[in-house]
């Protein structure tokens, strides 16, 4: 099968940039990354469809030299889905901005709590006999999060209940 190298290179470039953006904290950048990946995938389908040819319309019974219509139909579906996705993620980013003043992807609250409780268990066991000083920890100090969002809760502490 003949492969169009330009398409492959562009696909790889778009995919790389998309993945890089996907690793950002800000939801709008993540969205741009998703769109780039979506386009990369569409191009990948063009590569998968084989060599380019005439528009896939059968005229006078001539069926040679036309490009494969099936991948194009699939790409069309994929594009529609990407469009819907973009709209939904944009709405989420906007709502997040409305609620929090930023659109950063946030940490799992309970995970942070469990992590912190575990740390606290270790430290309080070690220190309780000698001192009431509590060594501060900043285990959930994420760069992307405002301090007031820091998910510190002792309310879920289980020590007294089990």
């Amino acid at each position: 099968m003949e492969v169009n190298l330009t398409l492959v290179v562009i696909t790889a470039g778009l995919m790389g940039c998309g993945v890089y953006l996907l690793l950002e904290r800000s939801l709008s950048r993540v969205l741009v990354g998703l769109v780039m990946i979506g386009n990369a995938v569409s191009l990948a389908f063009l590569v998968a469809g084989g060599p380019a040819g005439r528009a896939p319309i059968v005229e006078d019974g001539v069926t040679t030299g036309i490009s494969d219509p099936l991948p194009q139909a699939m790409v069309l579906t994929a594009i529609v889905i990407t469009l819907a996705t973009t709209a939904f993620v944009l709405a989420m980013a906007y709502r997040s901005w409305q609620l929090n003043g930023h659109d950063d992807v946030q940490d799992d609250v309970e995970d942070a709590t469990v992590r912190r409780l575990a740390l606290r268990d270790a430290t309080s066991d070690a220190y309780q006999a000698t001192t009431s000083d509590y060594p501060g920890d900043d285990s959930s100090g994420d760069a992307g999060q405002a301090p007031e969002d820091d998910p510190v809760v002792a309310l879920h502490d289980e020590r007294g209940t089990t």
Binding site: S124, Y127, Q128, S132, D133, A154, D157, R159, G160
Partner: peptide, 11 residues
């Protein structure tokens, strides 16, 4: 508490 000790600072 029955299952552990918590520092007041934590509280």
């Amino acid at each position: 508490t029955p299952r552990g000790v918590v520092s007041k600072q934590d509280i």
